[in-house]
Design a binder for these strands. Structure first.
Lengths: 220, 220
DNA sequence: TTGGCTCGAACGATCGTTCGGTCGGCTCGA
DNA sequence: TCGAGCCGACCGAACGATCGTTCGAGCCAA
C-alpha cells in the first residue's frame, strides 16, 4: 500500500481490559478479535497491517503477537463468530415449524438481528474474496446458509405463497442481497433494531409501493 | 499475502489485441483496464499484485508498465467508467420527467442495466474502502449518486406514492442495497437482462409476497 | 525470583515501481 | 528494391519500502 491512509480516527483506545488491574491492561483473545474485525472492515483485510491492528489495541506489534497467533487466525475467529450467529438461526424451532413462508420470514427477521448484533464479524464474512484457505472455508459455509434460504424460497414459491413472476433462484439472491446490504450502512444507534427488522420485512415481502394490502402481513 | 492463491483460472488469455498484427499483440489502455478490473474483483484490489495483472494480460510485469501508469491509475480508470455509466442515467430525460415514483422506477431499472453492462467496474466501485485519495474521490461521487436516489425516494414518499411505514432514508438504503447486490452473484448469460430488470423492479416495489395487486405497476 | 507482559530489532518475502537494454517491424532516402 | 535508422514493445534485474512474523532481552507485580 503506497496510498495515503485515511484520517485515522483518534478514538482507537485500547479495547477490552476485562480485568480490574488498571495499570497493565491485559487483553483477552475475544476483545482483540473485535478490535481486529473493526479495523479489517475500515481498511479491508489485505490493506490492514499487523501494525494497524496492534496500534488499535494500544500496544506494539510484537506485544500484539504475544496474544494472538497471527493475522489469519484473527480473521478465522471473527468469521467463526459470524457463522455461528447465522447458523444458530437455522437451529431455532421457529425456523423449522409452520409454512415455508412463515419460516422464511422468521429467518429473515432474525438474520437482520444477527447482522446488527455481530455487525463487524458478519461484514467481514460478506466481503471475503477467497484468497486463503480460511477465506474459502468461510465462503463455503456462507454458501450453505444461502442455500438453506434459497431452498425455503423455492418451497414457498411452490406452495404459492410468493408472487408469481419472480424466479425463486433470483428472488432468493435478491432477498439475501437486500438483507446483507445492511452491513454497508447500518450503524448501531441510528435506527432502532426492531424498527429496522420491521422495515426490512416490509420492504422484502411487500415492496416499496403504496396501498398493497399485504395479506397475512405481520403486525409491526 | 502469505496465503495460498485460489486455483487461478487457466483461461487468462491476453486480452485486447486490437491490431491486425498477430505476432506481437499490442494492448490498448482500455482493454488493460478491463483485465485489471476483472482480476481486482477476483482477488480484491489490495491482494492483487502487478505481477497478477501482467500475467493476466499475458506479458511480464515490466512490459505491463510500458502500457499503464501504475496500479492506482488502473483503478481510477475503471472507477471512472463505472461512475460515468451511473451518472449517465441521471442525465436521461426520463430521469427528470413524470412523478417521483415514475422517475425513481426508471432510474432503478436503468441502474440494473448499467450494473450488468459495466459489471466489473461497478463491482470495483461498490467494494471500495477509501484507503487512497482515488478511492475516496470515487466514494464521494458514489455517495452523490446514492443521495440523488435517496432524494427521489423522499419525494415519492411525500407524494404518497410509497408505502407508509417505511422510513424514506431506510427505504432508499435498502433499495440501493437490493440493486447493488446484483454484482455479488449476477454473471452474464445466466439470466436474461430484461428478465432481471423486471424481477428487480417487482421485488423492490411490490415485494416477494403473493397476491398484492400492485397498482400502477409496470407491464413486464 | 519467577513469569506474564512488553518492547526494539531484525528476519525473509513480497510489494509497486524503475532502469537499461534487446528485439523486430516500419519508415524513408538512396 | 533495399538497408540504415528509428521506435514501440518487451524483458530481466534490481530498487527501497513494507509486509507478517520471530527472537531475546528488559520490566514489573506477585
Amino acid at each position: 500500500m503506497t496510498g495515503t491512509r485515511p484520517p485515522a480516527r483518534e478514538d482507537e483506545r485500547p479495547a477490552g481490559a476485562a480485568r480490574e488491574r488498571r495499570s497493565r491492561p491485559t487483553y483477552d483473545p475475544s476483545s482483540l478479535v473485535e478490535v481486529a474485525a473493526r479495523v479489517f472492515n475500515e481498511r479491508g483485510y489485505d490493506a490492514t497491517s499487523m501494525e494497524d491492528l496492534s496500534a488499535a489495541a494500544g500496544i506494539t506489534k510484537s506485544s500484539f503477537y504475544h496474544h494472538v497467533r497471527g493475522k489469519e487466525a484473527l480473521l478465522r475467529a471473527a468469521l467463526e463468530r459470524a457463522l455461528d450467529g447465522l447458523f444458530g438461526i437455522l437451529d431455532e424451532p421457529a425456523a423449522s415449524t409452520g409454512s415455508p413462508l412463515t419460516r422464511l420470514r422468521h429467518i429473515v427477521r432474525r438474520q437482520v438481528e444477527v447482522l446488527v448484533a455481530e455487525l463487524p464479524h458478519v461484514t467481514l464474512l460478506l466481503r471475503l474474496r477467497g484468497n486463503t484457505e480460511t477465506e474459502r472455508w468461510a465462503l463455503a459455509r456462507r454458501r450453505e446458509f444461502d442455500a438453506a434460504i434459497a431452498a425455503l424460497v423455492r418451497e414457498a414459491s411452490s406452495a404459492g405463497e410468493l408472487r408469481a413472476g419472480i424466479d425463486p433462484a433470483v428472488g432468493a439472491r435478491l432477498l439475501s442481497g437486500l438483507v446483507n446490504s445492511l452491513v454497508e450502512w447500518y450503524r448501531p444507534g441510528r435506527v432502532d433494531v426492531s424498527d429496522l427488522v420491521a422495515e426490512v420485512d416490509r420492504m422484502a415481502f411487500e415492496g416499496l409501493l403504496a396501498q398493497s394490502p399485504a395479506p397475512g402481513g405481520r403486525p409491526t
